[in-house]
Design a protein around this nucleic acid. Structure first.
Lengths: 348, 348
DNA sequence: TCACAAGATGTAAGCGCTTACACAACAAAT
DNA sequence: ATTTGTTGTGTAAGCGCTTACATCTTGTGA
């Protein structure tokens, strides 16, 4: 009896809005207003409230806030994997952009599995995230239907903006890949092999592959199916794939890779076979992550605007949430970066 | 008038627990029970509820759930940066572990700034996260006071478990660094230089530095301050630092680096000066990220159990949340990995 | 001086969920 | 036949916050 004021000892007593109101001698509504739109209260009251907040060490309860305001101040992101620094950096940039506006980032990874992506997406929606960032634009229409019926702002990163009517923040993978192919051709290569990432549910990989093959076709080169190997994006797979390609009769003089990780793996594979780069075989990557300049020779690659996409996605989502209007899509340039892993073919 | 049933057109009508209850012909309590502890309802009712859930496409509202249950099913993580794959991978592992238990991960980054870490921590606490993962164990006591007064489970990753009474999931940085030094000495090096990360607020970097210097001291080698360079963990800094060290009179024959990124940068720097590795200078790293085997020669380094720490942290936090008991700290071994970037000193 | 607008604050009704408690139905034990 | 326990379900009271609306001050122009 009479122990009502004693906090349950298994649950620390966290001060609530009401405690603040009582201490400041105002109503809870005023406290809420002070916190959310300070210009709507008299300076005097504001100070009293702020003081009470400080004294109690009050911090608003997230659940209550989310429930009452129907906003979670949280944005979700689903990326294939954090393990590739290209995505990690984009997430980092996104997170920083959001943090500046006091919005948090919920991360989930799909491991390149469309199914897992959908599961994660549902979870994020159930969380009541205010917005969602996704990688790529290729998914079953139902997914977009869900998103749209919920009226949740979402941004698609990494794909070419013209690819869809959705808010897309990306670059032209096919064009960039074409440019790589053009440069490989210009260096004099004719026997060219491709190391691509897995295509299923990955429009970026497909666009890159397509950009290359089309450019080669334009130059009159059609690839034998055996000259194209599709693999997960890992160093080891890159190495194994390169060994496979370089073991073919009429060995390729250049390997165009779907990303830098595969390319670095390919370099290792070539080296394991005693081949020099670019003397015996040229290798190109895609992404321009740190790895590209850490290897020797440095990788010829394409600089992908990862940080800018992350930042732009954050900004666009916040704007969409704020205004209710879907912002315009953004296309960033992807720059071809010539380095020494691409040279002339042997005897060329 | 009479338009009550018509959903406001600016806010899509999301089904609630009550809608499910109505459709299933049961009370909201029963629906809640069906969802949270299915074994407490009759099979028949459970099926009816599950059916209603499916028909309506119901998904629980996070705010309501969090508010009523005082649980957010969310864990927060603050890491220095996602840009280093060692942390990205740990976060990835953590996220996967949590996702399996339907818990989400809120990520924040401190950029190695203690102040920023505190800000993010406050935000996470305000979010009502059920647990928190932090990197390293060195921070002002007030930080731990806040955490403890809130009774929020938290795990410290990357540091040696014995370093504190808190739940720590890590490895012995000093011992691992000592082992590196021992191997460098065993290879015959006597002129040794150090490239370390920034020490401030970074107990891991300090422990590694200390491990190395103590080991060297044991061998009768004391380093000139000019032989130790502290830098941010980037490739470019590693390169610049190595050039500085290798330009000293009486050039070092080995550079022990605080992590693989610095080491890869150092290799680039050495190469830029026309030095061969390990012929003219040996280089060692720490972490064993992909980069370590992508460079040539491959880096001698220490394999840090990043994935295991991420998983173990997830498990430990979930257990702590569940039971209310702080689990035991865990120390993982960190394995020395000999590769070709460490050789005998020139003429040695 | 008075009517009225504008501004500041209070009142109270939810937001969607969980859960203590009450109750009903039935089985087993007396 | 009555008691007791078990199991399944409903009732209703919050959880901490926001916000529409009501109320009370204060300032302004006629």
């Amino acid at each position: 009896m009479g122990a009502d004021t004693e906090p349950r000892n298994d649950r620390p007593k966290v001060p609530t809005l009401e405690d603040v109101a009582r201490l400041a001698g105002v109503s809870t509504a005023t406290v809420s207003r002070t916190l959310n739109s300070p210009d709507r209260v008299r300076t005097e009251t504001r100070l009293a409230v702020e003081n009470a907040v400080a004294v109690l060490g009050y911090t608003p309860n997230f659940g209550g806030q989310a429930l009452a305001s129907r906003r979670s101040n949280t944005i979700g992101a689903i990326i294939p994997t954090m393990a590739n620094s290209i995505f990690a950096t984009a997430v980092q940039a996104l997170q920083e952009t959001l943090a500046a506006r006091n919005v948090m980032l919920l991360v989930a990874s799909s491991q390149y599995s469309p199914m897992r992506e959908q599961t994660q997406l549902r979870t994020l929606l159930a969380r009541g995230v205010d917005g969602i960032a996704l990688i790529g634009s290729e998914r079953p229409p139902e997914v977009y239907d869900i998103l749209e019926s919920r009226r949740v702002p979402f941004a698609l990163l990494w794909s070419a903006p013209r690819a869809s009517s959705h808010l897309t923040i990306g670059f032209d993978n096919a064009a960039a890949a074409s440019e790589v192919a053009r440069n490989v051709l210009a260096a004099g290569h004719r026997r060219i092999a491709l190391l691509t990432g897995m295509i299923e549910g990955n429009d970026r990989a497909r666009a890159r592959l397509q950009g290359v093959t089309e450019e080669l076709a334009r130059a009159g080169i059609t690839l034998d199916p055996g000259d194209i190997v599709a693999l997960p994006y890992t160093l080891d797979d890159g190495e194994a794939g390169a060994i496979r390609l370089l073991s073919r009769p009429d060995r390729p003089t250049a390997i165009i890779c779907g990303n830098d990780v595969l390319a670095a793996g390919a370099m290792r594979g070539a080296r394991a076979m005693g081949l020099s780069i670019p003397g015996d075989v040229s290798v190109t990557g895609f992404d321009d992550i740190e790895l590209a300049t850490a290897v020797s020779p440095a990788l010829t690659t394409v600089r992908v605007p990862h940080r800018r996409m992350g930042e732009a996605a954050g900004q666009a989502l916040l704007e969409w949430i704020e205004t209710g209007q879907q912002p315009r899509s953004i296309g960033f340039p992807a720059e071809f970066i010539a380095r020494s892993s691409l040279g002339r073919p042997p005897g060329g």
